[in-house]
C-alpha cells in the first residue's frame, strides 16, 4: 500500500464519527436503545457469543447447509445448462419448463417442500439447492450460447469433438458467464439459507436472528447480522479472486 495515499483518511474518519455519534446518542436517549443498541454493546454481544461458541455453532450450521445445498443445486444446474447451451434438441425440450420455474420466487415453494420433505434438514437443503440451481443453469446455458460463430467454425474446421471440444472451447468460452452464475447462485443461496433458518430451524444464523428478535435481545441480532454480512463479503471476495485467476485472458483482471 502506498503510504502517501491519504484518500482513505476522510471516509475512515467519517464512519468513525458516525459510530461515535451513534454510541453517544444510545447512551443519552437520543435514539431508542432497543432498536439501535450502542456499538459497544453490539461488539460485546458479538465477543460474548463468539467466546461461548453460540455464533460459531450457528455459523457452522449455516455454512454446512449453504455448502451442501449449493453442491446439490449448482452442479446439476451447471451440467444441464451446458447441455442445453450445446444441444438445440435438449434446449427445445427443457426451455419451457425452465422458463416456467425460473421466475417463480422459490420461497413460495417452501410449504410444498415442507410437506414433501418434512421439517428436518432435507427440506432446507432442497430449498437452497432449488435456489442455486436456476441461476447456474441460466448462466451456463447463455455462456455456451454466446460463444461466437467464428469460434464454433474454427472448432469444426479442426474437427474438435467430444472431450477436446468441451475442454478447449465450450468450458473456457463460457467460463466468465459460469463464474458470474456461481456468484449469483451463492448470493441467492445465502439469502434462502438465512430465510429458511428463520422459519424452520433451531440452529443456524437465521434461527439466531429470529430468536434474538423474539426475546428482544437486539444486540444478539446485530451480532448475527455482522457474521452474515461478513460471510457475504468473504464469499464474494473469494469469487472475485477466483475469477481473476481462472480467466487470465480478460485484460481487466490483469491489473491485480
Amino acid at each position: 500500500m502506498n503510504l502517501k495515499n491519504t484518500s482513505w483518511l476522510a471516509p475512515t474518519f467519517f464512519w468513525i464519527g458516525i459510530l461515535l455519534i451513534w454510541e453517544w446518542s444510545a447512551h443519552n436517549g437520543g435514539i431508542a436503545r432497543l432498536f439501535f443498541p450502542a456499538p459497544s454493546v453490539i461488539v460485546a454481544a458479538f465477543a460474548r457469543q463468539t467466546a461461548n461458541g453460540e455464533l460459531v455453532i450457528a455459523l457452522g450450521y449455516t455454512l454446512a447447509r449453504l455448502g451442501l445445498g449449493l453442491l446439490l443445486g449448482a452442479i446439476p444446474g451447471l451440467l444441464l445448462g451446458l447441455v442445453m447451451g450445446w444441444s438445440r434438441a435438449v434446449r427445445v425440450v427443457a426451455e419451457p419448463v425452465v422458463a416456467a420455474f425460473h421466475p417463480l420466487p422459490k420461497l413460495a415453494l417452501l410449504p410444498l417442500v415442507l410437506v414433501i420433505f418434512g421439517i428436518g434438514e432435507q427440506s432446507k437443503i432442497v430449498m437452497i439447492a432449488l435456489a442455486a440451481f436456476f441461476p447456474m443453469l441460466i448462466n451456463s446455458m447463455s455462456g455456451v450460447r454466446q460463444i461466437d460463430a467464428l469460434t464454433w467454425e474454427v472448432a469444426r474446421h479442426y474437427n474438435a469433438r467430444g472431450w477436446i471440444l468441451l475442454r478447449r472451447v465450450i468450458l473456457p468460452g463460457s467460463l466468465p458467464m459460469i463464474l458470474a452464475g456461481v456468484k449469483l447462485a451463492v448470493n441467492v443461496a445465502l439469502l434462502i439459507t438465512v430465510t429458511v433458518e428463520m422459519v424452520t430451524a433451531r440452529q443456524g444464523l437465521g434461527a439466531t436472528i429470529w430468536l434474538a428478535w423474539q426475546t428482544l435481545r437486539t444486540e444478539n441480532l446485530y451480532a448475527a447480522l455482522i457474521v452474515i454480512a461478513s460471510l457475504g463479503l468473504i464469499t464474494n471476495w473469494i469469487l472475485e479472486r477466483l475469477t481473476a485467476r481462472w480467466i487470465p485472458w480478460q485484460s481487466d483482471h490483469m491489473t491485480t
Binding site: T151, V154, Y158, N159, A160, R161, I164, R168, V169, P172, G173, L175, I247, W249
Partner: peptide, 16 residues
C-alpha cells in the same frame, strides 16, 4: 481462442 495462449492456439489443430 482468447482463452488459449499462443502455443496452445497454434497446437490446437494437432491436439484434435
Amino acid at each position: 481462442f482468447a482463452w488459449l495462449n499462443i502455443l496452445e492456439n497454434v497446437a490446437f489443430g494437432l491436439e484434435t
